[in-house]
Amino acid sequence: MTTRWDPPDPRQLPDWRSGMLDYLDAASTKATMREALRAGRFTIVPTVPGIGASEESVGSLLLTTCEKRRLEDAALYYATPDMTALALAAAQTPPTEPVTLSRLPSEAGLIVFGEPIGGYTEDAGAALANTPFGSAGASAVITTPIVAASWSVWDPGEVKLDRGEVRWLYRGQGRAGAIPAGWRGIWITFYSPRGLFSGLPPETVIGTMRDGTAMTAAMIDGHREGQGPVLGWDNEMLLQEGAAFGPPVADTTDSWAHVLYTAWQLMAQQGKSRWAEVEEIPRDRAGAKRDRRQGLTGSSAVRVIRVHSAHRPSPQAAQDDAQGSTGRREPQWACRWPVRPYRRSTCLNPREHAEGGCTHEDRIVSGHIKGPEGAPLRTGDTVHLWDQQPAG
């Protein structure tokens, strides 16, 4: 049976972060990232011309250093399955406001979702074909869920070297080139669970080990059992301040960013349009001491984000949808919001609207069930009944 994403108890998040930080420090992690850079699997690529080391070696060192600093500074969030459901439902339509830095709930953060916010299917054997670990004819098709994201305001200038100037390149969907020095926006890293090869037959050949023996699904899962963090770095992207959101591209960082940004919007709405309830779970004393020894500057408290009780679906609806979830892809949440929440562009200073001097932001409006209370729920196609021949 395919292994599902099993979300954590929110209290585990600080320890998960500690494991991620230790993993980023490891030489084996930098070696893995060097191979991934050679294979062209990174979107943000730092280079230092004339430094005398390979581009991949420099890139792996700088990327792990940056991600480590961001996680050290990160506020911790856990979005419950219902909150994940709401973000997915509202993200079916792109945000209408441009990318706005004030939408960030904290300057740096790490959020773990109770259900995947997306995923992609890939042949792991084919992906390794052009690396030293490839094996001729190997095929291992797996579905990787995206279950977490870290972020920070883009500030590459914090990375200093004794010699050489760091230049940053972007290799995104349909876009490539140097990132300008004055560029402003948000750096996002998406995470997937480690150790999900157990959905494959154990004998499935994925590649070749360093000694030339076959690398199988069972070997990878066995090697990872009890080693390294639960979450692994999957991909990254940039959101430029002031840029417009377009239609999401399925199974890409673009689509996952729509869901993440929508979650930030839902967390920010207050007053009558409030969507979220936040519970803060403090770190226990022993854990806080470990965090200080590890040099963490961000809070170790975990903010649990739930759907506000005014909008929360019934337990039966949640149970019905949970049974239909694979735990490997974003669920459809068919039972919860028959008429999905939708976006409304709200003017923040109406007196200046006519002259064009106003600003607008998204407000996400509650979905609902149309029709009188107690009437049978219909979610199928509308049928138009003509009781007479239309004129013409």
Results as ranks from 00 to 15, higher is better:
Val153Gln: 05
Val153Asn: 00
Trp154Asn: 02
Trp154Pro: 01
Trp154Tyr: 14
Trp154Val: 06
Asp155Asn: 15
Pro156Ser: 07
Pro156Gly: 09
Pro156Ile: 06
Pro156Leu: 10
Pro156Val: 07
Pro156Lys: 06
Glu158Tyr: 10
Glu158His: 12
Val159His: 08
Val159Arg: 10
Val159Tyr: 02
Lys160Cys: 12
Lys160Leu: 14
Lys160Arg: 15
Lys160Tyr: 11
Lys160Val: 15
Leu161Glu: 11
Leu161Phe: 14
Asp162Leu: 15
Arg163Thr: 11
Arg163Glu: 01
Arg163Cys: 00
Gly164His: 05
Gly164Glu: 06
Gly164Asn: 09
Glu165Ile: 08
Glu165Phe: 09
Glu165Trp: 00
Val166Leu: 10
Val166Met: 12
Val166Ser: 07
Val166Gly: 03
Arg167Asp: 04
Arg167Gln: 08
Arg167Gly: 05
Trp168Asn: 10
Trp168Glu: 04
Trp168Tyr: 13
Trp168Ser: 01
Leu169Ala: 09
Leu169Gln: 13
Leu169Lys: 11
Leu169Gly: 15
Tyr170Asp: 00
Tyr170Met: 00
Tyr170Glu: 00
Arg171Cys: 08
Arg171Ala: 10
Gly172Phe: 09
Gly172Ala: 12
Gly172Asp: 02
Gln173Asn: 07
Gly174Met: 12
Gly174Val: 09
Gly174Ser: 09
Gly174Gln: 14
Gly174Ile: 11
Arg175Cys: 11
Arg175Asp: 05
Arg175Tyr: 09
Ala176Val: 06
Ala178Pro: 01
Ala178Trp: 09
Ala178Ile: 11
Ala178Tyr: 12
Ile179Asp: 00
Ile179Met: 07
Ile179Arg: 05
Ile179Lys: 05
Pro180Gln: 15
Pro180Trp: 10
Pro180Glu: 14
Pro180Ala: 15
Pro180His: 14
Ala181Gln: 13
Ala181Asp: 14
Ala181Cys: 05
Gly182Gln: 13
Gly182Pro: 02
Gly182Ser: 11
Gly182Tyr: 06
Trp183Asp: 01
Trp183Thr: 13
Arg184Ala: 14
Arg184Pro: 00
Arg184Cys: 05
Arg184Phe: 06
Arg184Met: 03
Gly185Glu: 12
Gly185Thr: 13
Ile186Trp: 04
Ile186Lys: 04
Ile186Phe: 02
Trp187Ser: 04
Trp187Gln: 12
Ile188Leu: 15
Ile188His: 03
Ile188Lys: 01
Thr189Gly: 07
Thr189Leu: 07
Thr189Pro: 01
Phe190Lys: 03
Phe190Pro: 00
Phe190Ser: 00
Phe190Thr: 06
Phe190Arg: 07
Tyr191Ile: 03
Tyr191Asn: 04
Ser192Gln: 14
Ser192Asp: 04
Ser192His: 06
Pro193Cys: 08
Pro193Gly: 00
Pro193Trp: 05
Pro193Glu: 03
Arg194His: 04
Arg194Ala: 08
Arg194Pro: 00
Gly195Val: 05
Leu196Ile: 10
Leu196Thr: 08
Ser198Val: 14
Ser198Lys: 15
Gly199Gln: 11
Gly199Ala: 09
Gly199Glu: 05
Gly199Tyr: 03
Leu200Val: 06
Leu200Gln: 03
Leu200Pro: 02
